[in-house]
Amino acid sequence: MNFGADVVAGVTGHMNGDHSEDNLLIARAFGYPGAMSSEMIGVNGEAGVWRVSDDAGEHELSVPWPGGSISERPQIRREVVALYRAACERLGVEPRQEHGSAPAVHAHGEVAHGEAAHSEAGPRAGHGRHAAGDEGSAPSDGSGQKPFSRVLREGSWSDHSDSEGATFMEDIMRGRGSLADYVDLVAQHYFMYEALEEAAAKVADDPAFTGFHSEALVRLPALEADLAHLIGPDWRERISAVPATEAYAARMREVGDEGWVAGVVAHHYTRYLGDLSGGQFIAKRVARQHELQHEGIAFYDFSELGSLTEFKDGYRAELDRLGASLSAEEQARMLDEVRAAYAFNTAVFVDLGRAKANA
């Protein structure tokens, strides 16, 4: 069983971004006791896969799932947590307390975090952070209702579906994609964010939106710099949007023209939180494979935001506040828009894969 690239990107991005020490524990417990670094690079129905470095060099480590073969997305979290516990037992390390539900894996690499803040200082055995793969469980707001950020996360789980065209992103995530593949992805990002930031500007003065958008989030200048570096000064004449990107951009502009704040936030949320989560892993992978420094991957640099974990927690608090101001009908409409955004994004991967196959 092979999971789609959206799932693989989300899981590996989360593990490498938020649980790097857990990766190291698993590597040391299951084959490389002298491991100095460990990065999760794959997930399939039989095992998790890590790239491990020690004094002897670099190795690929495949660790079978303790519970046997899996075929469903929610089972991944269960098995990763089981591996973490088993690693702790082998190494004599006290495991952290697990709690909460399975993580939601977004179509372009985001794993939605629970509302409990994560420490940026790094995990310590038995202290401070959730267990590997655990997102925590968002509490109710005191009225028995789930926070709206959790409603969005859980209500869209079924839409993070596998896609036959998603091998395009899987190749990039596994280091099999070419530099040309990455450039094609950057080009699509340009058209997406041109539309998204236009839509955001349309509602920028609405009090319901101001808490979501920081100037440090704006991506167009970084994308322009990346494309100039990757393609050359004539990059505008050399890129084009695939049909799915055109449809995606058209929908974002339509929502902005309508002045529908919740709809703009639906697209804002799915894109930017993906960039701040799984996107950070994509940047590291591409930088290493293609020997890029800041130029070429500036799109993923959000250092001006400060702690990304704190920013994402604050963003989800804004989602909760927005949700509290919406009627049930408007909440449902916004969730539908979030689901539509995931579908658009997956369709882009399909189109990119098809264009590559036909080239």
Score class of each variant (00 low, 15 high):
H106V: 03
R78I: 11
S143E: 14
A131T: 08
C88L: 04
S149F: 13
G100S: 01
E135G: 13
L83Y: 12
V80A: 01
R90Y: 08
A112K: 10
V105K: 04
A121M: 07
A138N: 15
R90H: 12
V111F: 02
P103F: 06
G92E: 01
E72G: 03
S156G: 09
R129L: 09
A131C: 11
Q97D: 11
R73N: 10
R78M: 02
P74I: 01
A86Y: 00
R90D: 03
V151G: 11
R153V: 03
E79M: 03
A87W: 07
A86R: 05
G92D: 10
P95K: 08
A102H: 06
G142E: 07
R73P: 02
Q97I: 13
P95I: 02
G136M: 07
S137A: 14
R85A: 00
V105F: 15
G92P: 13
A82H: 00
G109K: 06
G136T: 08
H113N: 12
E135A: 12
G100A: 00
H99S: 10
E94F: 01
F148V: 02
A82W: 00
R150M: 08
A138S: 15
D141I: 14
A125R: 06
Y84P: 06
A102L: 02
R73D: 02
L152E: 05
P123L: 11
G155V: 08
A125E: 09
S140H: 15
A87K: 02
R77K: 09
A87F: 00
A102T: 07
P74D: 00
P147F: 13
I76V: 09
A116Q: 14
A131M: 10
R90G: 08
H130V: 00
P103A: 07
E72I: 05
H118I: 05
K146Q: 15
P95T: 11
E120G: 07
A132H: 03
W157A: 10
Y84Q: 09
H130G: 01
S156V: 10
R124T: 07
E115Y: 12
E154S: 11
A117N: 10
G136Y: 09
E94K: 04
K146W: 14
S140L: 13
D141Y: 12
K146R: 15
A121V: 07
G122W: 03
G136R: 06
E115D: 14
G100K: 00
C88P: 03
R73F: 02
A112S: 14
G109C: 01
H113V: 05
G144P: 13
